[in-house]
Each structure stands twice: as C-alpha cells, then as structure tokens.
Design a binder for these strands. Sequence first.
DNA 1: CGCAAGATTGAGGTCGTTCAAATAAAGTGG
DNA 2: CCACTTTATTTGAACGACCTCAATCTTGCG
Lengths: 234, 234
Amino acid sequence: MQTAYVTIASPMTVIQPRLPVGPLARSAPSAPVAGATRRLGKDQELCAEGAAATFFYKVVSGGLRTYRLLEDGRRQVDAFYLPGDIVGLEAREEHRVTAEAVCETTVIAYRRCSFEAASRGESEFVREIVAAILESLERARDHLLLLGCKSALEKIATFLLDMSRRENDEDAVALPMSRVDIADHLGLRIETVSRSLTELGRRRLIEMPADRRRIVLRNRAALRDLADGIEAVM
Amino acid sequence: MQTAYVTIASPMTVIQPRLPVGPLARSAPSAPVAGATRRLGKDQELCAEGAAATFFYKVVSGGLRTYRLLEDGRRQVDAFYLPGDIVGLEAREEHRVTAEAVCETTVIAYRRCSFEAASRGESEFVREIVAAILESLERARDHLLLLGCKSALEKIATFLLDMSRRENDEDAVALPMSRVDIADHLGLRIETVSRSLTELGRRRLIEMPADRRRIVLRNRAALRDLADGIEAVM
DNA sequence: CGCAAGATTGAGGTCGTTCAAATAAAGTGG
DNA sequence: CCACTTTATTTGAACGACCTCAATCTTGCG
C-alpha cells in the first residue's frame, strides 16, 4: 500500500528542537532540517504534482494554493495556505498536488527526507497508523476533485472504477451500499445516480444484472476516460 | 494543537496474529494493541462523531460508511471502507466522523491509545509532521462537506468565516487570492462567487470596501447559520 | 401472496452555469 | 501624470444539468 521511502544515505542530521513556534523552527545547529527562505512571485510554482518531495514548506507571508487538474483543465483548489501553515508534507516520494503562490509570498523550506529517516526508528505500529492517515488524506483529495469538478456521469464512472480497484479489479463490482449512500457520497440525488447508471448501461460501458447491487464493467477504457475528464468521442 | 491522550491502564489482551494484513496484526506480545472481533447489523453504528476515539477498526467483511451532517440533515458520506481497510484512526481524542455498517459487517477493534503513547517516544519532529498531516485531513473533510452539500451562498459564507478564523478572527478579512482561485476552491464559477458576495452584501452580512480584496464581516451569527446549513430566517 | 422498502422513470422547476457586455483596476509607455 | 492597453471583477439574460415531486416497477421477506 505505502511504498517505502528510502533516502539513500543523504547526509542528514538529527534535529533537537525546542522552539516556541514549533520544532520546525528549531533544528539543531549541527543537524539542520530547515533551509533557506524562498520568495515567490504571484502565480509562481513552489512544487509540482508528481515532483520529488524533497522539501516541505512553512508559509511566512503571502499565501499559497494547492490544486489538482482534470485532463481537460478543470481545476480543484484543495486548500489555501496562509502564514504559519505548513504545506507539502505528505511523507511520500512525490508531491500529490501542485502548490503555487497566490500573491507575493515567502516560505521557509525544510528538508523532508528526515521524516522517513526519523520514523524508521519508530515502531511498526506508529508507521502503520501514519500510513493509514495518509491513505485517508489521499482518498479525501481524490474526492475533492470529484465533488468539485466532475459531472454526474463522471462521478459515477469514477466511483465504479474505484470500487472495482478496491475489489481486486474484478469486472463484476459488488455495491454493498444503497443508492442513498452512493448519492450522498457523490454529492448527487438517488434519482441522478439511478439515471446515470442507466445511461452508462445504454452506452454499453457497464451492464446491470437483475441484482441491482452488482454491476459489470464492460468498457474500462471508456469509463477511465470519463473519470479523468476526457471528453467522450461519441 | 494535539492533546495528549493517556490511556489509563486498561486490561487488554494480546493478539498474536500473523496475518498477511500488515503490522497492526503483529504488535509486540508485551504491548498488545488489538482487541475483539465485532459484528454489526445493517446500518448499525460503529462509532459516532464526537465520541471518544478509544478504538479504531479494521474491516473484515461487509462494509462501512463514514459521514458528517449539516444541521438540516444534509449528509456527506466521506468514504466507504471495505474489507482490509482501516477506519477510525485519527490520532485525536474524538472521532470526527460517524461510522456505520452499510450491510452485515465484521470488524476487528484495536485500542488506539497506544498511538499517542507510542508517539510520545518519537521525536518532536515526527509529531509535528503527523499533526500537520492530520490538520490537512480535517480540512479536507470539512471541505468535502462543503463541496458535496452546500449551496453557493453557504459555500461563500463558510469560506469567509474560515478565512477569518485563520486570520485571528478579525472582522476585516483579507483575500489574497483571486476570484478564480476562490471559485475553483468552492466548486463554483467566478460569476457565481461574485454574485454570492454581492448578495451577502445586500443582506448586510458582509460589507465590501472599494478594495475588492478585502471583506468586512458584519453579521457573523447569520454567516455561521448559513455555513452550518440552518435556514436563514428572512 | 402481499406488503414494505428500494430503485427506476418521467415531467417540470431551480440553481448555478454559460455567454456576453459593462465596469473597474492595474499596468505601460510616452 | 495621463492616455491606453490589459486584466480582473461585476452584472445581465438565457440555457442546462441536476433536483424535486410523483408515479411505477422491482426486490426481499414475512
């Protein structure tokens, strides 16, 4: 689930904190975690989705936005970060969102390799908890993109693929939850859920057996395109 | 930010697992983390929002939904949890979401007190990182409720109050970001953002100085009601 | 079989969007 | 400092996706 993040012998030091602003500001002289101040102009990128997460940042002045995109350009701004906030901390190899300045902004950069290193000393128990929390965060972010940007049909396609993936990618997807639950999950009404499923069936992307709690995926590629916001060619 | 969570010597039994499901099943014999299997009927509640988070759970069979509500009953189902998933892990004193079974479901309960205990031994650095991640998760969940349930006016009210809170609750809120950013954050179009702000001004809940990047909150109570989904009495 | 709950389908309404234009603000160069 | 261009924001009118309300159909279960 979580991929191990091994820092290859990065010369890194231990931090010995005890600051009022939080430990981040107080690394030991000999083992600095923190780095330089960085100034960003309006709309300048701090870090990109997919880029190596070598640093994370604390906002000093100005503000940042983090966002994700659909293929056709629709954008979901996950959050804004104001002075004092910490951004880019995901304990993963890659950043999952793009961060940009909304105006003239100053941040302090911290090396983040120390996190995996530090937690390597931790109990397996703590690590698994952190991994589970990160998993929740990633799912939540995926869902922000869905709720903020996608149409009803795209939402349903996304949902079906997600359920399928979590059930070992079988073509037959079991939906243990009711239409009401699905609707409240996707920010739709049950009637719209029903109509969207019917429409996907009409388009031959899925098939619905008599048992309404089971759905067969007939055309994953097309469903994937729908879910990713690529306009359907039809 | 994070309050310490001390477990008072609860008599608890050790599990000796060695399941393929991850470390949770394999805590040290002397420091057992896990507990009993629990069976839930359809729609039965596993844990409630606000309740003490004494346990967290791993789904064995069936499925769970987690959700949050607005005052008038609108519901956002944050996520579904299928066999193998871990739920209720927030490293906080209280659960932030309600978890219920979507059908006949079996879970394994784990004591979660050990997390704070275990992390007490961790470096301040790791704890701050975990705290920042949890902060992100909470914000994301709040935002799911906003995107999934709220009307345009409610979204704007929520956004203004949130920005105000993060800027020391001043009545004058600075909005460093553009209307486009706000729109993409709230799942709206810039025109709708603009219209909603105008409408709030018309209702005397806010005031907009000439400088469009600044907004004065005139009636926080009414804004709060709007944000919480309490129908406006007017 | 008969009933209750859930799911689907249909018709009409609404909120937010789209497209377009007006207004305001912020630069730019003279 | 001012005319001019560019960009951001606000406002208006018409459209459309999804919602609401209501009826029908299906399924599960006593």
